[in-house]
């Protein structure tokens, strides 16, 4: 089974994402902001990370840049999941090392389709 860290400051989004990912047989852990996510990753790298952009303390983009610079931080597949819905932000995320990008609002089908293709 693969693991996924869901990083979002909204508990509702975390709950929805957790449910869908668990149905896809991921082992899910959660973090409320980029800093907490970074600490968890340092402790143990997940296989995948679902990542919000705007969060207090440390943003998703800052977290991603830190993660990719960290030993073993190239391993997790990172899927942004954010209301930042313009090409500029998407390009920035890809440049920083994101693997996929989900524009909110998302549904089960989108999340499933993005995660299924991560490993193919």
């Amino acid at each position: 089974m693969k693991s996924c860290l869901v990083v979002d400051d909204s508990s509702v989004v975390r709950k929805v994402a957790r449910k869908i990912l668990e149905d896809m047989e991921y082992i899910v852990d959660e973090a409320e902001d980029g800093q907490e996510a970074y600490d968890k990753c340092k402790h143990e790298m997940p296989d995948a990370i679902l990542l919000d952009w705007n969060m207090p303390i440390k943003s998703g983009l800052e977290f991603l840049k830190d993660l990719r610079g960290f030993v073993g931080g190239d391993k997790p597949k990172v899927v942004f999941c954010t209301t930042e819905n313009d090409v500029g932000h998407i390009a920035m995320a890809l440049k920083a090392g994101a693997n996929e990008y989900i524009m909110k609002p998302f549904d089960r089908e989108i999340l499933e389709s993005k995660f299924e293709r991560l490993w193919s």
Partner: peptide, 15 residues
């Protein structure tokens, strides 16, 4: 729509 371009289309191809 935003939904349609997220179903099955890799983001790299979207961009």
């Amino acid at each position: 729509t935003q939904f349609e371009v997220q179903r099955g289309l890799p983001v790299q191809m979207l961009v």
